[in-house]
Amino acid sequence: MAVKLASALGAEVTVLSRSAYKEQDAKDLGATGLLVTTDDAQVAAARGSFDFILDTISADHDLSPLIGMLDLDGTLCVLGNPLLGGPKLWELGAGRKKITSSGTGGLRQTIEVLEFCAEHAITADVEILPSSAVETALDRLAAGDVHYRFVLDMSDLDATA
């Protein structure tokens, strides 16, 4: 959703990913490119090139490579789960970089985003499974075989049970 929203707002968007297999998905969502974070040459070439990075990684990870890719006065917004201990303070001071986070917005902000999404035909990409496939969904989650998000369709449940 972040790629779709940023693109609709006119930003030049680069998706950061651990592997190149998401490149076509990134472009389909509105990104202009993909940077493979496990490729040291790509990460080195991107040093100081981003104004803003939205970090949504849900597993422990080091923020230092992301901070290194920020330009002067760049901002890293952490929504994910950074490695405990955080970055070294000198990494932020070199280049006047900032780290921030974001909570959820209130009702007014939610309405504004939903209206923006409606105006720009922005929807969430989900895979719908019947609720009877919950075990399959959990197995696929554990295997990392989820394309964006699962939604369980509860209409297959017997309302009288």
Score class of each variant (00 low, 15 high):
Leu16Thr: 02
Leu16Gln: 05
Ser17Thr: 06
Ser17Trp: 02
Ser17Glu: 06
Ala20Asp: 15
Tyr21Lys: 09
Asp25Pro: 06
Asp25Arg: 06
Asp25Leu: 11
Ala26Glu: 01
Lys27Gln: 09
Asp28Leu: 04
Leu29Phe: 11
Thr32Gln: 14
Leu34Ala: 03
Leu34Cys: 03
Leu35Glu: 07
Leu35Gly: 01
Val36Glu: 08
Thr37Tyr: 04
Thr38Arg: 10
Ala41Val: 06
Ala41His: 03
Val43Leu: 01
Ala45Ile: 02
Ala45Lys: 03
Arg47Ala: 14
Phe50Trp: 10
Phe50Asp: 13
Phe52Gln: 13
Asp55Cys: 07
Thr56Lys: 06
Thr56Gln: 10
Ile57Phe: 14
Ile57Thr: 15
Ile57Gly: 09
Ala59Trp: 00
Ala59Tyr: 06
His61Trp: 10
Asp62His: 08
Pro65Ala: 08
Leu66Asp: 15
Leu66Ala: 14
Ile67His: 01
Gly68Gln: 01
Met69Ser: 07
Leu70Ile: 07
Leu70Thr: 06
Asp71Thr: 10
Leu72Tyr: 15
Gly74His: 07
Thr75Pro: 05
Leu76Asn: 05
Leu76Ala: 09
Leu79Val: 14
Gly80Ile: 03
Gly80Val: 06
Asn81Val: 09
Leu84Asp: 14
Leu84Lys: 11
Gly86Cys: 07
Glu91Lys: 00
Gly93Asn: 14
Gly93Tyr: 13
Gly95Cys: 03
Gly95Met: 03
Gly95Lys: 01
Arg96Ile: 01
Arg96Thr: 09
Arg96Lys: 09
Lys98Cys: 13
Thr100Ser: 13
Ser101Trp: 14
Thr104Trp: 08
Arg108Lys: 11
Thr110Phe: 09
Ile111Cys: 07
Ile111Met: 11
Glu112Lys: 10
Glu112Thr: 12
Val113Ile: 12
Leu114Gly: 02
Glu115Ser: 12
Phe116Leu: 11
Phe116Asp: 10
Cys117Val: 03
Ala118Lys: 08
Ala118Glu: 14
Ile122Lys: 00
Ile122Pro: 01
Ile122Leu: 09
Thr123Lys: 08
Thr123Glu: 12
Thr123Gly: 11
Ala124Val: 04
Glu127Asp: 15
Glu127Trp: 05
Glu127Pro: 02
Leu129Cys: 07
Pro130Glu: 11
Ser131Cys: 13
Ala133Pro: 01
Val134Tyr: 12
